[in-house]
């Protein structure tokens, strides 16, 4: 199962109900959180995708099991802040080169678990930004860490947290997954 902050049950409902319910539920969801919409209407995949694109939310993907579709969306106002203040930045290409040279690096993916599930860099560790404080003690402070998210904004915040906690070699990958051309791995079908 993919983790979601809110589950919307639109099973058995016909068009236009899945989209109407999704829209209503989206109002209650917090910025950056992930919603799972369960539906059985076959047209809902195209509907949800188009709706998300037009309303500025991020469509993560859809899984299908026994005729039930689960659509994943992340709430966004479409304009994540662009300012970044972590001093050490790496480009996507630099990370790709480091990985293809088999360098000893940790790739830390700070997006939500659902975003990670629908496509991440092979070998990356999933650590959503909201859980980073709890997991800091499990990481090696001497390691070379590349922090990645979708646009470089959340990874900037995560990089600052890591540096403040005493990590020596932390680089924020910009822009991150939105511009990633390297290999991708999925944890779902």
């Amino acid at each position: 199962m993919i983790q979601a902050d809110l589950i919307v049950d639109a099973k058995g409902l016909a068009c236009p109900m899945p989209i109407v319910k999704t829209k209503k539920a989206m109002k209650e969801l917090e910025q950056g959180s992930v919603m799972e919409v369960q539906a059985t209407d076959k047209g809902s995949t195209a509907d949800i995708k188009a709706w998300a694109e037009s309303s500025g939310h991020q469509y993560l993907g859809t899984t299908e099991k026994d005729g039930m579709l689960a659509h994943y969306l992340r709430k966004s106002d479409g304009q994540e802040k662009e300012e970044m203040s972590h001093p050490h930045v790496a480009s996507n290409e630099e990370l790709e080169t480091a990985l293809s040279n088999r360098a000893e690096v940790i790739v830390l993916d700070v997006r939500e678990a659902a975003e990670f599930a629908f496509g991440h860099i092979p070998g990356a560790q999933s650590l959503p930004l909201g859980e980073i404080d709890i997991a800091l003690s499990d990481l090696d402070k001497e390691a070379s860490i590349y922090v990645v998210c979708r646009s470089g904004s959340r990874s900037d915040m995560a990089s600052q947290k890591l540096s403040a906690a005493g990590f020596k070699d932390v680089k924020n990958v910009v822009p991150g997954m939105s511009g990633w051309n390297g290999p991708i791995e999925k944890s779902v079908q």
Partner: peptide, 11 residues
């Protein structure tokens, strides 16, 4: 009415 409701969901 289906189109209208869909459009409303599109804000």
């Amino acid at each position: 009415y289906i189109i209208a409701n869909g459009a409303a969901a599109y804000d």
